[in-house]
Amino acid sequence: MTQERTRSTSTTGAGLFTTGRLLLILSVCSRGGVLLLLCAFALWTEYLNLKVGYNSARLVELSSGKPMRIFYEYSDAFFTMLGDPVQVMQSNGGMTWSIRVMGIQFTDPVAGLSVLVKNRHMPSGFALGLIVPLSLALIFGRVFCNFICPASLFFFSISRLRRLLRHVFYFPEYAVNRGLAWGVLVGGLVAAMIFGHGIWSLILPYFAVGQTIFHGLAFGTLYATVGSIAVFGLVDLCCGNHFTCRFICPTGRLLGFLGRKPLVSVRRNAAACLTRCTSCADICPLDVNPKLDQYRDCSLCGECLTICPGNCLSIGLKKGGQRVDV
């Protein structure tokens, strides 16, 4: 009886924009935004050069009606809106793992660990940059992976490709122990101590994406990190859905550990949950099982919310051990 009722609500009551679909759209938009931001950082110095060149009257004369002039005028209007263009450019920059947006420093926890281990000294600004990423992980869990990491957009598209071609090709699905990612973290720290922090640019997928974008756009050259991205993509195709995010990426493992008891997470309505259905655990890209109320590693991607036939999953707030609806 209960099952009959929930089935009917899932087909008639759910609109076009359910929470799950909204989360999916939001995650793609925000990761795309981060990607665009990285591209903008690499191209802004070009704009500055244009500005210097444009200030000569002869160039103004020559460029009338040219697309370059239109580009210049729009970007100039945009930057003037934000403030002094030179200052705006100096307050933004960096790769994903340590980035400065509007003068505020955001530090990757792995970068912080690496500096702490190798340098044994952290400037206060760099240490303060840890606050936002760590509190995000403590409150929401692994949301960095789903809303900020630009490499995860690449892995997301690979997982969609796997789903699209699942009747044409055979895609294997392997699982290894979580110890692998912890090992990569410790091994990376040891390698960083011996060889240098640059090692991380090939280990961390998002850092590799940042380096590749920067080199491609700012210098027009291919960087060694392209190879690392290709290897991660191949691993995702041949070893499992989101294999890199689940089993290799040390940042994901660290953030998953920090956010193992998130304040905000997926909440299950046990009364409406279908007894023998495991679709949420099957579709989860990060091996979370909402069926058993385990939310370690949950990145709030919303895949389980869209697939749940009983419509019993929602995003909820945990308060004093008891979960309440938002």
Binding site: W44, N119, G196, H197, Q211, A218
Partner: peptide, 23 residues
């Protein structure tokens, strides 16, 4: 080398684009 994490902010901000990242 102990302190530099390769975040690329110096190369981003360089107006002359003389700073490149080593491979």
């Amino acid at each position: 080398l102990d302190a530099c994490i390769g975040c690329g902010q110096c190369a981003n901000v360089c107006p002359n684009k003389c700073i490149t990242m080593a491979g």
